[in-house]
Design a protein around this nucleic acid. Structure first.
Lengths: 244, 244
DNA sequence: CGCCTTATTGAACCCCATCAATATCTGTGG
DNA sequence: CCACAGATATTGATGGGGTTCAATAAGGCG
């Protein structure tokens, strides 16, 4: 499957891509060297500050992007302002909705974010050239679907306490990609979301999130410093609190 | 893309597939004639009675299937019995989770169901032979993802009244596939789920679902006969009740 | 009709939302 | 370095939407 890689000498691989985290995990790993060089010509890195909106709900989209660092939140909003976060994207996720001209969700930087953006049309051409690329995107879609369904259980059936514990557990798993998901040992991380965002993710209010965090703290399941920095001494206790 | 279809005369297309609803809308429409004939040799139609479990949670799966008629519910269950329905599959949906040996959800027939089942390994071979097949599955995965996110908003942020109205609206859209989704005129359909299933879908209790249906009935937004048969005189009123 | 399952309706309670006040963090300028 | 202001988070008091428990009603099928 990678036989065409020989055609172009490795030294021609763009430096940008060489050092890019997304090179081997994200979609770019599915490209031929020639495609990688072509894509690079039309791509650009962008730094986004926390809070800025990348794509509005139902907005036309003409570019896709790889998340290089930071966290993107995908949110749906009702006309009266009620909001629900329906997904979080971490590096090296692909950001975009293939085969649709408009997004069904709004995308906003939850932290400072680095992106590598490229034209939608170019990616769609490459998809048709290289099945492996579509395969990667398909796998990401299936993974996101699994995650969305996991959250449907959380949203529909868990208590506020279980929701908050589930959220912390999910973040712990995602923020450190090198960590083995089976590892039940201690973990330390920074929350990438404000209390308001956490509430919008869990279908709760800010106050309830805050109260449940206090309860977890008083039960010694977590420790919190400076509102954002979390330490979990025993992952298994957190999982139990999450209802798993 | 269909040039290889000439190779085999149309008359060789299996009768089963000829009359199968899934032939041109589901995944089979992406197969070459040769593949269709090969798949047919190893596939079998099954009739499933309402309530029987097709796949358990985390169960190994060795077959995939097309839904020919009826409704399948996909559900997640917690160890203490709390349940959440995370998806419904209507004809001609593809049933299965490609690239994973085990399912993350339980699948159960919500009504009497007809399936066309085939070996997992055979489909995966065909995926690698024919990018168009993966493309269709990819599109279905993206569509299911859109639906799952739509329901996350419903589960997390809507009131019980809005949830029930949203559910009725979704069913009205899916049960009659020939209907134009933009059509706001009257609609009549049978609920494919019991009150208990509706509750598990909406993250509510049976009692709350029942009360909200009564409220919708008293507001003349719906009419119900024999518990299952629903008539919606004005789709726009239902949409408003759903919070759209 | 009679039995069993499924659905509706009622009453009491509870979890979480709402409203409100206080505390903590962050960063900016004196 | 501290003071201040605005944003963010915590904590408290109260109320309501949905659950729970319980009884009645309506369908479905022999």
């Amino acid at each position: 499957m990678n036989d065409d890689r020989k055609d172009i000498h490795n030294s021609q691989i763009p430096n940008l891509c060489r050092s890019c985290e997304a090179r081997h995990q994200g979609i770019c790993g599915a490209l031929s060297n020639e495609q990688l060089i072509r894509l690079n010509r039309y791509s650009s890195q962008r730094s986004i500050t926390s809070g800025s909106e990348l794509i509005g709900d139902e907005e036309e989209i003409s570019t896709y992007a790889n998340v290089l660092s930071g966290v993107i939140k995908l949110a749906k909003t009702m006309s009266d302002g009620r909001q629900q976060i329906v997904g979080l994207q971490f590096a090296p996720d692909f950001l975009g909705r293939p085969f649709h001209s408009s997004s069904r969700v709004a995308a906003e930087a939850a932290s400072d974010v680095k992106l590598c953006t490229f034209p939608k049309a170019l990616i769609e051409t490459m998809i048709s050239e290289r099945p492996e690329l579509e395969h990667r995107l398909h796998r990401q879609a299936l993974r996101e679907l699994d995650e969305a369904r996991e959250w449907m259980l959380t949203l529909g059936r868990k208590t506020a306490a279980e929701k908050v514990a589930s959220f912390l557990h999910m973040i712990a798993r995602n923020v450190d990609p090198s960590r083995n998901p089976e590892d039940r040992g201690p973990s330390t991380f920074d929350l990438p979301l404000t209390r308001a965002d956490i509430a919008d993710f869990l279908g709760l209010t800010i106050e309830t999130v805050s109260r449940q965090l206090t309860k977890l703290r008083k039960a010694s399941i977590i420790e919190i410093e400076n509102n954002r920095h979390v330490h979990v001494p025993d992952m298994e206790r957190l999982e139990r609190a999450a209802g798993n």
